[in-house]
């Protein structure tokens, strides 16, 4: 079994994140980390590898040279190899172009299953896994809270508006996991040491080969920072705060 895991680096959600007011793109100059949801996706692959000798796990990503840090972390968690598409021409790529590039990279690996996070913490559009699946003409089973991977299929559970559903998809396939899926492991000391010897391949778009030409493009027209909320009223409870709050809700016609 060969598994590709799609990963990306994102600005740390614990810090104040900003957009460039001119380009509208996420400002990635600060601390960037492997997105937590990608670590969960990697965990799915690593658990299968733990139980099935001979499994190969490759993390695939697109991004600038600072991405190396995140990919090394993935390798230290247990991935066997990493493939990074690095190309200045990809700066500011939208979801459509990103998916086209990732699909090309995945195709070159000839994998049995592609595992992704359901949505990143920065873009949150959650469309890349489905777009990759379409480029590769593979079925998709997305937004899984629990995953059982076998040699022939994936069984998964998804939350719905009314409860949950269980579904299966034959391999090869693309799947995505939610933050309810199993928590990711930490890199072990041994993992960190062996990661240094693992192969991290860097490719340009030209080296990837033929990208699909007709990938629809979006363009950002304007970026506006929301005004800060005006300071509100604050009281310290001296025994009557519940009544004062009720009064506030009534007077604002909020109830």
């Amino acid at each position: 079994m060969k598994i590709a895991v799609l990963v990306k680096q994102v600005p740390d959600t614990g810090e104040q994140r900003t957009l460039d007011p001119i380009t509208g793109l996420v400002d990635r100059r600060g601390e960037n980390v492997l997105d937590e949801i990608n670590e969960r996706a990697l965990e799915v692959a690593l658990r299968y590898k733990d139980a099935n000798k001979g499994t190969e796990v490759v993390v695939v990503s697109m991004g600038p040279d600072t991405l190396t840090k995140g990919l090394r972390k993935a390798l230290s968690m247990g991935a066997d190899a990493a493939l990074q598409v690095l190309d200045d021409a990809l700066a500011g790529a939208d979801a459509g172009r990103t998916a086209a590039v990732l699909a090309c990279a995945v195709r070159s690996l000839a994998v049995d299953v592609v595992v992704a996070g359901n949505e990143s913490t920065d873009g949150r559009s959650g469309v890349v896994p489905a777009m990759v699946a379409e480029h590769l003409s593979l079925p998709l089973l997305s937004a899984l809270d629990a995953v059982e991977l076998s040699e022939v299929e994936v069984l998964g559970q998804r939350s719905t508006a009314t409860g949950s559903l269980r579904a299966s998809v034959p391999l090869p396939a693309v799947i995505s996991v939610t933050e309810r899926s199993a928590e990711a492991r930490f890199p072990s000391f041994k993992g960190i040491m062996t990661a240094k010897r693992k192969v991290l391949t860097v490719m340009s778009v030209a080296q990837l080969g033929q990208l699909p030409g007709n990938t629809g493009q979006t363009s950002i027209l304007s970026t506006l920072r929301s005004p800060a909320r005006p300071a509100g009223r604050r009281i310290v409870d001296e025994g009557n705060a519940g009544h004062e709050l009720a009064q506030f809700l009534r007077s604002g016609s909020l109830i």
């Binding site: 459509g96 086209a100 359901n118 489905a130 979006t218």
Partner: peptide, 24 residues
Amino acid sequence: ANSVAGRDVAARFAVRAGAGLLAD
């Protein structure tokens, strides 16, 4: 809709149609 099902379908359709996707 930007539901799980809606965006999966929209995303695949956008690739098929060579269309730009404006999500969420």
